[in-house]
Design a protein around this nucleic acid. Structure first.
Lengths: 195, 195
DNA sequence: GTCTATAATTTGATAGAC
DNA sequence: GTCTATCAAATTATAGAC
């Protein structure tokens, strides 16, 4: 029976998160003060602290939301197919598209050194999305689709290039959009570990 | 005719750099205050500001020194051989060893978001070491050792897994030391792009 | 829920004795 | 070259009116 929050409040909350994400990604968490967020969002300090108990709480809300989003993206891409090859490709494709369409959100997930400002955050490599990638590779080895080898080594060889591609895309050091390199990187990576 | 600096002063300078590196890597640049460095190095504020004009200058000295070191490492490894395969392997091996033997120095190079505190620093992907890796791949394509493909895609596929391996090693999320995965990752990556 | 005013710390950096 | 004492500015966060 909890009534919906009034739209205004929800809007303010979203505005704070969007603005903070923008500034955190552009200048980093520590170089962004609460007053910077206040100014950019055209709000008051009081309003911000009404919605979030601290600057760290803003970062934590972003972290939780964006990590959940990325986890779901990877999980749903992976579950669309049965073979490891197609599952892996689907994950690579979705991540690459996300990096192009919502670069700031992916940047916050992939680039930020979360543990520097969120002590409880695990290193990104041990987060769910990366566990899922390892699972795909493990299944592929078990089914014989991927040659017998250390699953960690196989996972690095298969997804390492794609992740580097996304990182470079997010750093704006590529001439072409990331998707235009993706197929070639993926094919080479897959060739390297397939039976 | 410039006389050598007295050893005491040189020692203090090194002490500041070593301590700062340790703290920067452990807690990040912004979470480390000059007073933290002072305390950990058992020096005075005055002594630190005698050797460096600002906190940023300490970070810049570290950046310049460590990036030069990494550049030399990659360049010398690359120049030891003629074939792209051996040059690439040598680079991968040296980087991996460095990550295990001097993790803090490599962490500062690879993990830190330099442009957040050193405005003039270029993104890591466009630094010399990464340019050299691309050069190795380009030469390999030209000589026919590597199949004809986009050199950027080839470079990502070849070194992406190794770099991810080093990143994971630095995050302490591997059971085994990095070198024990290296050969398998490298062989798979090379197989993917070799003619 | 949103605002302004302000408190309490911490920060990077300087001055000047020794 | 190293030290202590200190400053000015910025930061996170709170109080209390509306």
């Amino acid at each position: 029976m909890t009534p919906r929050k009034p739209p205004k409040a929800e809007h303010t909350r979203e505005l704070i998160l969007t603005t903070a994400l923008h500034l955190f990604v552009a200048h980093g968490y520590f170089a962004t003060s609460v007053h910077d967020i206040r100014r950019a969002a055209d709000l008051s300090i009081g309003s911000i602290y009404h919605h979030f108990s601290s600057k760290e709480a803003i970062a934590r809300a972003l972290y939780d939301e964006l990590m959940a989003r990325m986890t779901e993206l990877v999980a749903s891409a992976s579950s669309e197919h049965k073979s490891s090859r197609l599952r892996g490709w689907s994950v690579a494709e979705q991540l690459c598209q996300a990096a192009q369409q919502e670069p700031e959100k992916v940047k916050f997930n992939l680039h930020a050194r979360h543990h520097e400002f969120l002590p409880e955050a695990p290193p990104i490599c041990s987060s769910r999305p990366f566990e899922l990638m390892q699972e795909i590779v493990r299944d592929g080895i078990a089914s014989g689709e991927i040659r017998p080898m250390d699953p960690i080594a196989a996972s690095l060889a298969l997804f390492g290039g794609v992740i580097r591609l996304i990182q470079m895309c997010l750093d704006d050091v590529l001439q072409q959009p990331a998707t235009s390199y993706l197929e070639e990187v993926w094919e080479a990576s897959w060739r390297g570990i397939s039976s």
